[in-house]
Design a protein around this nucleic acid. Sequence first.
DNA 1: CATTACCCTTAATCTACTTTAAGGGTATTT
DNA 2: AAATACCCTTAAAGTAGATTAAGGGTAATG
Lengths: 193, 193
Amino acid sequence: MIIDKLFSNFDNYLPLNSAERHDLAGRVIQRKIKRRQFILQENDVCRHYTFVAEGCFKKFQVDDKGTEHNLQFAAEGDWLMEIVSFYFEKPSRVYIEAIEPSVIFQISKPDLFHLFDNNSKFDRNFRVIVENRLVETENRIFQAISSTAEERYLAFIKQYPHLLSRLPNTQIASYLGMTPEFLSKVRKDLLKI
Amino acid sequence: MIIDKLFSNFDNYLPLNSAERHDLAGRVIQRKIKRRQFILQENDVCRHYTFVAEGCFKKFQVDDKGTEHNLQFAAEGDWLMEIVSFYFEKPSRVYIEAIEPSVIFQISKPDLFHLFDNNSKFDRNFRVIVENRLVETENRIFQAISSTAEERYLAFIKQYPHLLSRLPNTQIASYLGMTPEFLSKVRKDLLKI
DNA sequence: CATTACCCTTAATCTACTTTAAGGGTATTT
DNA sequence: AAATACCCTTAAAGTAGATTAAGGGTAATG
């Protein structure tokens, strides 16, 4: 069953017993998402926490010139959200779009808060999910302000080897904060060594 | 009383009643920190969540060449932590140093978990503290990968006007990912317009 | 009071990265 | 099968920002 991927994700934190799994299953919605389909657009309110069971998404923001900048990729086993929009019901500044045909589980704010109120293990688990995300973003900031384009690309390869073959280089360049042309040069120079 | 600054910080989330304030007060340690004093060094384990009641800190990471890169400033009312180090008791990769004489409140992991276990309001509040931090870091990533040095400096002025006069430009340049010399140029060019 | 340690600025030179333009390859759609 | 939309690469020219070096100002320290 595909929902087992959701259950076993919690084994990384505080694992759920069968009653808790049942509670969770009753509160999530399973959805099939096509390639190029958006599950969140700018100015919409983010109504769900999303767990990716299969496939891959990109979360990105668009600047004044209309250029997209990827903030996060999320593949199998990853969580996705736009926190301010979700908790404060503000319009989202980001888009979330499927890069591959995907299967996700989504949970709404009322359902999530119901879980929080009935069992503090959910509070704890979702705090850890956010904490993990914070660790990733702080690492990225350090790299963005301290590394060259080549160093950032090498760090990406090391951290996300499973994504490398699945993503077009244009998307990786956007994530790493450089142009696709320059990424192409970086890759060529690395082969020479 | 200076501890009221800690209590009233929670008014931004779920405010504490007097019993909860009493519980919290019994679990935090108040410390006076001198300018240039470190409260966390690389390779030490981060044993506390820190709340800044007075003064200002910088959290930074050092690259291979020995250059410091500021990840965060924390002044009155801000929270500071090195999440991975704190929760997993791993050696910290960052330093935290006082920029001004400061007063802080610190809470250890056992004391924090005691609060979590006895009252889920603390779980909830500390989740929101981490969420707020995540929002800030995601905004910074977007700026780091999409903006010029001038745009990043203008955004900094707008977001942290209270820090501008308290920090030397060398520290701001390190936070924004540029050299102090170039920040000086950016500031000069802005005056001309 | 003298001295050292920062800190800010300016300017010349250098380089990492962007922009623009173009050509060929491979999916996706019709 | 043709047409369109992506995608990757290369290369020339342009620019944002780094590096190096130097001078002067002001705050911390003996």
